[in-house]
Design a protein around this nucleic acid. Structure first.
Lengths: 185, 185
DNA sequence: CACTGCATGTAACCTGTTACATGATTTC
DNA sequence: GAAATCATGTAACAGGTTACATGCAGTG
């Protein structure tokens, strides 16, 4: 049910499904991607449940927009979700499973390529998040301390992304080192 | 389709669905949990596709077992998956989304409780993985270097789990510090 | 005889992805 | 007039969860 609550959270400011998709791509992508079709479907359901309300609004360009806002009951549901404490679900990481079975790839070059590719991927993700942090730093006075409350929590989540991608990239590099060390010895 | 390949990987040694569930709970839980009902369903499909073969076998206790083994085509599919390079899917972490909206919880105590709970959770997970590493160290001679190849890769995945849980626990502690610092100031 | 562990499964449901359909407005 | 962007949706499918059903064998 997390998509429900993400939409409730995002709709503290009124927005259309299309707007929300943009927000997901820009800000939520790293911890909760979502497709437009799913967003629309969920918005309608949340309205049926009374957690959202919508009205039609003219668009500056293109067809009519349906703009959603959160209701009191929606806000209550959002707060209840937050107050229930962190919901730490399951991890599903196919690349870890691949690493687990990598001895099946008897060729040492292929094994090394695997960890090299992982290292490159997470180094790139790390760099992208660092770049975002720099943008935020340039925009907000008082960064990174003395931020307004909402920005502070957003800052926290960005920091986690940076720390995690760095950890994974470092791990991949260390695996690669040990694999190549075993060969040249 | 990752569950398919996890089962193929696990079935380099023949096993029943029930055995596999035990293996998922013991070893794969941290990167790919799976329910029995899903395992059974998938095993049957993989047999239909010719990637697995099964035979009935008597059980020492309880009803007859259905023991699966991987076929040549299955092994090829497994190798192809590994050789295709790391498949880095999407992350979906509800607790990060909660942190993102945590300003909605106006009460500072509740905000701090959130990060305290996160810290405790990941510290516990970290400790559990460290304990597993110690067990492995006690069992395997030549740990942590000079391990047989298969064990080495399992060791790598365990290390990643340890490093990631530590990173997250540290991040939560740092958020908590900054929240409390802001209050007493 | 009840309980626990072994062992296999079905059915209903929920969530998320992919492909497709529709149509308006602005830009080249 | 074609392409890009805005904007909303439907349908089919894939993957995962939950609840339930069945039945054997050993233990207290």
């Amino acid at each position: 049910m997390s998509l429900d609550h993400l939409l409730l959270g995002a709709l503290r400011e009124p927005a259309s499904g299309y707007d929300l998709k943009a927000q997901f791509d820009a800000a939520f992508r790293y911890f909760w991607p979502a497709e437009l079709s799913q967003i629309y479907r969920t918005l309608r359901r949340l309205e049926d449940e009374g957690l959202l309300a919508s009205r039609a609004a003219p668009s500056e360009k293109g067809p009519e927009r349906r703009v959603y806002r959160i209701t009191k009951r929606g806000r209550t549901a959002l707060r209840r979700w937050l107050a229930a404490g962190p919901s730490v679900g399951d991890d599903r990481h196919a690349y870890v499973a691949q690493a687990f079975f990598l001895d099946e790839l008897a060729n040492p070059d292929a094994q090394e390529d695997f960890f090299r590719a992982l290292h490159d991927e997470f180094t790139a993700r790390h760099a992208a998040l660092e770049a975002t942090a720099k943008e935020w730093a340039a925009e907000d006075a008082g960064y990174p301390d003395r931020l307004p409350e909402a920005e502070r929590f957003r800052q926290f989540t960005l920091e986690l992304g940076i720390a995690k991608t760095e950890t994974i990239a470092r791990w991949a590099a260390s695996c690669l080192d040990r694999l190549t060390a075993g060969r040249t010895k």
